[in-house]
Design a protein around this nucleic acid. Structure first.
Lengths: 188, 188
DNA sequence: GCCCACATTTTACAAATGTTAAAAAATAGA
DNA sequence: TCTATTTTTTAACATTTGTAAAATGTGGGC
């Protein structure tokens, strides 16, 4: 495993032995830009950690896709409904750049969770951190207008602004692409 | 612990020994309607499970409160930022009815998590389920208009519609009370 | 029963955002 | 480089939602 990944916030909390135990099960995989790693209509049996690249999670409606999450280096890519309920999910995950990932089968991961306490607590923290981030975004949808959300996004995710198509950022912020364009024109 | 609580989805997954271990640490507490159980500006050291009653979590902005979560019997009440980061949170939790709760100190809960594997995995599932629910709500904010969200809410939470003030439901749905009133008038 | 405090609805108007279509700009491939 | 495709912007108009204030409804205490 790359040193830089070991130093992400997600891994520093794990002890060395938990880390090397986990590393035994990880398989490094490469995927091209455009790969759909997780399909909403399937039970997806893998848990991924992104080493390099950018990903987006999106749901498909009648006339549109809604991007509701972006993943960057060190983030976990997962179909939560597969993981928890062993059922197809609501999210697709697409790689927006050529990517390197660590892959582990959910079967193996759950076995580790049931054998190794620090890992079980590590899995708990992954979900808890994601929950806090998601709740804050939900709250921001009410407290802040689209312009404020866009400004915050620029500050908090400067990499994403540079590397992700604006149409995806628009739906992530909860507006249409036309509205985002207007906001950007007004900000100049 | 009440039988009915043991039969909630949250507890049936736990084995009997994990349940009785947990029960040793729970203290039953009663609180009046209106009690603010969790304060956003404080590190709150307790984890609660609601036995009877209804609660809401809300954040305070400049001119308004936003209710972003409702808790019913069997749900966990918690300041996630206290729990995970040992820092003050973004959420207040208010009891909307006289309530009976199980209370455990975070110190004790973390000790259990570090000793007892089934409990650590139970804690993981609590956060994961909450995450799925929150992500779905965030996605619904984009896919569905306020009228559809209100109709869904009536179907999915018939108890809350009866027992919670509409001003709280309005902000939970992401609209003002005026808009909710208009929706309700149109639905008649 | 009456009054008070609070919740909800209604109204009129303003602001923000969506929709559709088209033009302009950027990007990828041959 | 040139073309084809996709992305982004712009425009005009429709719709939804917000704001502020007044009116109405509701429940508890005296």
């Amino acid at each position: 495993m790359q040193e830089k990944l070991k130093n992400t916030e997600l891994f520093t909390a794990l002890g060395d032995d938990a880390l090397s135990l986990l590393a035994n099960y990880f398989k490094v995989v490469n995927h091209k830009k455009g790969t759909i790693l997780i399909h909403a209509e399937k039970v997806e049996p893998y848990f991924y950690i992104l080493e390099t690249g950018i990903a987006r999670a999106y749901s498909i409606g009648e006339n549109q896709q809604i991007t509701f999450w972006f993943g960057q280096a060190g983030d976990v890519l997962l179909s939560y409904n597969s993981y928890i309920n062993n059922k197809p999910g609501y999210e697709n995950i697409e790689l927006l750049e050529d990517s390197v990932l660590y892959q582990i089968h959910l079967r193996d991961l759950f076995e580790l969770y049931n054998e190794h306490l620090p890992l079980a607590n590590w899995g708990r923290k992954i979900a808890e951190r994601e929950l806090i981030a998601t709740e804050k975004r939900l709250i921001d949808r009410s407290f802040k207008d689209a312009t404020e959300r866009y400004r915050d996004f620029i500050v908090q995710s400067p990499d994403l602004i540079k590397r992700v198509a604006l149409k995806h950022i628009a739906s992530y912020l909860g507006v249409t692409q036309v509205t985002l364009s207007r906001i950007r024109a007004a900000c100049k």
